[in-house]
Design a protein around this nucleic acid. Structure first.
Lengths: 236, 236
DNA sequence: TCCGGTCTGTGCGCCATCGCACATAAGACC
DNA sequence: GGTCTTATGTGCGATGGCGCACAGACCGGA
């Protein structure tokens, strides 16, 4: 079965490092689900119904539109989880969560999650650390968004997405990228063209392929790597 | 005594709403300290030695310099606390914390804090909520910094500082504001001049006075108010 | 095979901010 | 009162991104 194969290939990194006993206990509370591209998981202000531990899918978390424009503040794949407020005992989210890469995830109901958290101190500790890392990554993103030019930010986004897609090939139109990065569509076209001309990527009608990862890293701002380093330091 | 008077005038909002028993218990673990302007409380990567609950002082939390420039990501006064990572069981911070307004605060050692947290479920709940609010405010700041022009951001900063200073009069040179807002000093001069010409503020050599709060609010981006609304919704 | 929608590319004037350089002003100290 | 330091104000060309408009390119369905 495709689904079994995937969940075997990629475990969720937050869960994978738990002691066997805790790991099994958590998974017993989960069901395995397959998520479709562009599926909306949460809307700002809505109640959270499920917690997700992605195994081979990934999500975009976007601020509610401010002055008619949103902005992606998190990109969450198998290294993270969806539904972080519940770790703090809060059952609403103020971000829009959308599936950006289709695939399997573990899912637990919001009702069940506090129990699971209470039963495993290891899980509690690990998710606390994850929250800390997240906060710091968002803080860094404030600076990144302020100081770095579009081309570098785009390169960073492509690298982060490649990591989470577990593939050098994924989907995103310029229009959509513009929404995530908070710029004009034309700006993305210009930046993407530049990267393509340098043979770092290839794209066509929303189909993006990373050709030269090392080159992309050189084109990206240092925030790619910094952000990952914070994760490794506290959760690696 | 000056200190007694101040601590009586302004309690810390996170502590104030705790049940009496918990409130007293927490304060028993604290000592009363007086903080001086520009005192550095934490440096990025350093271990956290104390937790602070400001009563009538306030702090700037700034990202470590990225490409030779930092950026203020939090402004914390009597509505908040310093040392949030400890709520998650982490004893380091990745931000630089500086006293921006001198005054009194409650202080607890990092060793003692986990106990205090364990003894009061009300405190735990309240600080969890505070963390949630903080995260959302930072996420909003990503968008604010991206979309809003300097003059509006400056106006917002002045209002937020006025709130935390509990006074329409405080200190900050253009040079310093430039560091916090991540722009050139000259940019601040231009924006500040504009606000002064409209009789919204008066300043001279770092001495800032808010003259027309309502006018400033009109000049500020909607993020001022939005941010406060999130706080009130979850902690009000 | 043609048509319509979606995606990408280009041109143009505008504006906020940048980097740099220099000018003035207001305390501070002697 | 003179001198030094810190704080603020101004000028100028460069640049990254904006808003708008339109052109071409590709794809799928009738």
């Amino acid at each position: 079965m495709q689904l079994e194969k995937n969940t075997a290939l990629f475990d969720n990194r937050l869960l994978a490092s738990l002691p066997d006993k805790d790991h099994r206990q958590v998974l017993r509370c989960c069901e395995s689900v397959e998520l479709a591209l562009d599926e909306v998981i949460n809307e700002p202000g809505e109640q959270i119904r499920y917690v997700y531990f992605p195994t081979d899918c990934f999500f975009s978390l976007v601020t509610p539109p401010i002055d008619h424009a949103g902005l992606e503040v998190r990109l969450v794949g198998s290294e993270g989880m969806i539904g972080t407020p519940l770790v703090l005992g809060i059952d609403v989210t103020l971000l829009r969560t959308v599936v950006r890469g289709a695939g399997p995830a573990w899912r637990m109901t919001a009702e069940r999650f506090p129990e699971a958290l209470g039963q495993s101190e290891a899980l509690q500790t690990r998710l606390n650390r994850y929250l800390f890392v997240l906060t710091n990554q968002v803080e860094q993103m404030v600076a990144c968004t302020r100081f770095h030019v579009l081309e570098a930010r785009l390169a960073r986004w492509l690298l982060m997405t490649q990591d989470r897609a577990h593939s050098d090939h994924f989907h995103a139109t310029h229009e959509f990228l513009a929404l995530l990065l908070g710029v004009r569509r034309v700006g993305v076209t210009k930046a993407a063209t530049a990267l393509q001309q340098r043979n770092l990527i290839h794209y066509s009608r929303g189909d993006i392929r990373v050709l030269d990862r090392a080159g992309l890293q050189a084109a990206a701002c240092g925030c790619y790597g910094d952000s990952e380093a914070i994760y490794e330091r506290f959760l690696g």
